[in-house]
Design a protein around this nucleic acid. Structure first.
Lengths: 337, 337
DNA sequence: CTGAAAGCGCTTACAG
DNA sequence: CTGAAAGCGCTTACAG
């Protein structure tokens, strides 16, 4: 059982390599190769179990059928869900996915971009870290498709799919206000991530409308969840007026709940609570937890479809989709009554 | 700014391609190339920003520096955590990871194995689905390293790292018995996964020691979590004697809790509860939830180290590591008092 | 110490 | 309709 190559086939059938190659690539018509010969080749291919050597194809065509996926951390549920949705469709179209986590670190982000470029991945799906603008632009300049999701990047013009984070912050805060909470704290992270900023802007906008004052607890970037508990608890003790909390990132959701519990206050009755990104356990928690959910499946589908279109056609139209977040109302924000 | 290739360098410096290649591959010594020439080449390489074309290297060496990771579903927290740990180390050693989710479906598992083989990945990390034995054995026959984790596979002899699932089932059940629960239900999944079987065996072993009877709720494979809630609740209603529950898979943890709640019974006081695989929210849940935790980091490190060793050396020694699960005792199993 | 050459297995203009 | 040939950019025996 030796390796059969295109040359083996050609020799065996008394034709030349290129003819076989054309047939294999569906160019028989175009090259006006006789139906009869085409069938003979195809039959041999089938019987011999021939498979083209993809490494040779890669070198020859410069394409790898690989998609690079760069996110902050593949084990954050939001990202692993996206990874899952993307995977299926990519496989269906003959692409495989190479993932990489940049930890939201600019330096690492740049290095990953470079490593994947060295691999000649055909396209990228990136939840961008600010600071990688130049690197991404240089990919675009080389006509390599890049689809951004989750966040945008200043001065980078490419396909992008994300939710309206201002709206997300707004509906969360508005909902708390509507339910009678007056002193709403924002628990967020100090980072250059535009999405966090926008969620904050939405929060401030809602507060302004009802003439409330922002009470902002911005944790330093890199704060570990365990550490966050203490910091948030301290903040709560310092600002005794707080009667509700909006957490902008799932990274601190559990820390924030722990912090509230540690102060002895009750969620919902004493501290209204809304957080970003829905999670399975929110519905069984007591009180069940209100969340701003991103339409993950819709978003993922748009992302991969957009990239595949760029990869398979010459279509240059830019896709810019801003999806709406959805408030999933549960008990943690049901009011102070 | 044109592409510089090994040929460019050779021409520019008046040497021949192979000399450059040898220097680049650190074989200057071996080939007794003059220190002086080596430096000249290296200097030029640096200045010109030359990077070897990895596609050409791939074709030439037959190696891709790609590792295939096949798991049931990349968005199950256990697997995405493993993916994360593996990734870092792989990158440090110049490998990238291509992931694929087989949904525990034999047919899909086989197809993925084939697709990754077509890609010429250098090695595999697999949480195996039973039924893929032959395919994996044929990889091994071709000297392609495969490291299994999470579960074993009959008749497949290769490196493998997993936890003692019998022990996991045993300590969970024993703990419940020790805390005074008498009628312990097992909530599990009907599948050919050996790990599930073993957890069940551990459960039965503990029961036997205390002369209790097993009460087994085995859900059909493929049952959706939402559907599981009803099935488990029904089971609870049917077996009114049940005063504790051991869930063998994180896939049904939340469903099981929902089911208990739906019957109006209280966790811990009325229904003791232990589940497999620890999760972040278990500590903030009320009651906090007891879990059998797998040593994910240790396991991942062993997995990737084992594979890298196989990839980088000729070492043929088989690694077989059985790690111990750890019971994380919390309130949900604190007894009936 | 260094060089000429074949090979990895494809793809694709180009010529007839 | 079909074939001869160059090219993708490396690696590595082999010869001197």
């Amino acid at each position: 059982m030796k390796k059969v190559s295109i040359k083996t086939i050609a020799d065996e059938l008394g034709v030349v390599k290129s003819t076989v190659s054309f047939i294999l690539n569906g160019k028989a018509r175009e090259k006006r190769i006789s139906k009869e010969l085409e069938e003979r080749v195809l039959k041999y291919v089938k019987e011999s179990g021939y498979k083209p050597n993809q490494l040779a194809q890669n070198l020859s065509t410069g394409k790898t059928n690989l998609i690079g996926l760069i996110v902050e951390d593949i084990c954050i549920p939001f990202f692993s869900s996206v990874a899952r949705f993307i995977e299926d469709k990519a496989f269906q179209h003959g692409y495989k996915i190479v993932y990489a986590s940049d930890n939201n670190d600019v330096k690492k982000g740049k290095r990953l971009l470079e490593l994947l470029a060295d691999r000649h991945v055909d396209g990228y799906i990136i939840a961008p870290t600010s600071g990688t603008n130049n690197e991404i632009n240089s990919l675009l300049k080389r006509k390599i498709p890049v689809v951004l999701f989750n966040g945008s990047l200043q001065e980078v013009i490419t396909d992008i799919i994300y939710i309206d984070n201002v709206e997300g912050g707004y509906i969360a805060t508005k909902h708390l206000l509507d339910n009678g909470y007056k002193h709403i704290a924002l628990v967020t992270i100090k980072s250059k991530q535009l999405e966090m900023d926008n969620r904050k802007i939405g929060y401030e906008k809602a507060l302004k409308e009802s003439e409330s004052k922002p009470i902002i607890c911005a944790l330093p970037y890199g704060t570990e969840p365990e550490k966050a508990v203490g910091l948030i608890a301290k903040f709560l003790t310092k600002h005794k007026e707080i009667d509700a909390m909006f957490v902008t990132t799932s990274f601190f959701t559990i820390s924030a709940i722990e912090a509230v519990l540690s102060t002895g206050k009750k969620l919902s009755e004493e501290i209204g609570f809304v957080t970003f990104d829905d999670q399975e356990f929110f519905k069984i928690y007591k009180p069940s937890i209100t969340a701003v959910a991103q339409p993950i499946e819709e978003m993922s589908t748009l992302v991969i479809d957009t990239l595949l279109k760029k990869l398979k056609t010459e279509d240059n139209a830019l896709q810019k989709c801003i999806l709406s977040p959805k408030l999933i109302v549960r008990d943690s924000s049901s009011g102070r009554n």
